[in-house]
Every structure is written in structure tokens, then in C-alpha cells.
Design a protein around this nucleic acid. Structure first.
Lengths: 102, 102
DNA sequence: CTCATAGTTCGATGACCATCGTACCAAGCT
DNA sequence: AGCTTGGTACGATGGTCATCGAACTATGAG
């Protein structure tokens, strides 16, 4: 039962992460963050979408544990939690962010 | 523009695949198929769910290109398209199907 | 204090999704 | 022809999702 419980937690997290990454807009965000390395203000990533929708996408990514946000004066800096995600799901981000193969 | 087009196709497929894999039931199916190696009748994988729902999950997986089904007499054999998926998204299935890390 | 900038919150809307049960179909067996 | 077995098709239902705009908050600059 203990093992089953652990497995359930695992399943839950992975479901959250895969769902978060199944949206192209959110993959764009994650890809940009991975490329930049440095924390980036939310608005600096151009999606063709309204402000509130962008906020929504950032929340989904945050609740999946993929990103981290901290306030810096008037803006909010976002960074990818790459180490943590890689530790829990090795190879996942690499696979998802990899360029399209021939 | 050609590159953007390719990218769009890529995005579409990856979205479909990640969405398909974001459901625990469907991951169970894929995991079973990966373990068995041999084609397996749909009904042989026990989910706690009705027949029509199972059909639905198999369709989602099929439309994402993750599985292949062929008729064999009265039943339908399902197999994982591992080679094709691995070719297009290297490491993705390994990452998703990997056991929970410590 | 006032204004601008960056982001959030709050409905609302239309689409999609997982699940169900029932009816249906297709292929083999007797 | 009948029955059984394995799966599909068809609504229906309740829930979630992506998106929007408009109102709000918080922080810094003049």
C-alpha cells in the first residue's frame, strides 16, 4: 500500500507535468526559459495571447512545478526549475524541448 | 516559412502525444504494452473502467500515433509503435515510462 | 500625489474530455 | 441460423480548459 501510494503521487505529478507541456504556448515558454538560462520577466516572452491568458499559462506551469517565480520590483522574474525536474524525470525535458528530428 | 511549417507539424504531433500520455489510464496501457513487447488484445489490460471508455483511450493513443491495432479473428491486437515514436521523439517514452526515482 | 508599468483576479464563453450505459457490429463456434 | 465474445458508435453528463476583456493591485518613477 505504501508503494502504491508513492506510485499514485508519482502518477499525479507526471500527469500534471505532461498536461502542462501538452500546450504549445506553454512549451514555447519553457523553451524560451531553457534557452535564456537567466530568470526572465513574464511579459518578455511573446505569445499571441492576452495578458490574463499568459498569467493562466504561467500558473499551470508553476503548479506543475516546472517554473519558479519571484518578485523583482515591478515585474516578476520566472525561471525554469530544470535541476529539480531533471532529477525527478530524467530526460523528459530534453526529449520535449529537443528540436524536430529529420 | 518552411521551417515554421515543419515546426507547426512538430508541435501538433507533440501536443497530441503529450496530451495522450497525460492520462494515467493511458500511461498504464502504454506501460503494459512496453512490458509485453508482443501485441496484446485490448481487453487484456485491466483498467477499472467501462468498455467504451477503454475504447476511447485506445483511440486517443492511436490518433496520437503511439499504438497500432490490427484485427485477428474476433479480437484486436494492439502494439506500441516504439520504434517510430523513439525515432521522432528520442528519449520521450523512456522518460515517461521510467520508474519513479528515489 | 499621480501616473504608468507589470501582473492578477474575476466572471463568462465555447470547446473539449473522461466516463457511463445501451445499442450495435463483426467474427468465430455449435 | 443462433449464441457468444471482443470491440465500436452514439448520445448524455459533469467537469475541466484556453481564451477573452474589464476591473483591480502593487510597485516604481516624476
Amino acid at each position: 500500500m505504501t508503494e502504491a501510494d508513492l506510485d499514485t503521487t508519482f502518477e499525479l505529478d507526471l500527469s500534471l507535468i505532461l498536461h502542462a507541456l501538452s500546450d504549445p504556448q506553454r512549451r514555447t515558454i519553457v523553451r524560451e526559459l531553457a534557452a535564456r538560462e537567466e530568470p526572465v520577466p513574464c511579459g518578455a516572452i511573446e505569445l499571441g495571447v492576452g495578458k490574463s491568458t499568459r498569467t493562466h499559462h504561467f500558473r499551470v506551469l508553476r503548479e506543475a512545478g516546472l517554473i519558479e517565480q519571484r518578485r523583482e520590483g515591478t515585474r516578476k522574474l520566472t525561471s525554469l526549475r530544470r535541476a529539480e525536474v531533471d532529477a525527478k524525470f530524467p530526460g523528459l525535458l530534453d526529449a520535449v524541448l529537443a528540436p524536430v528530428p529529420a
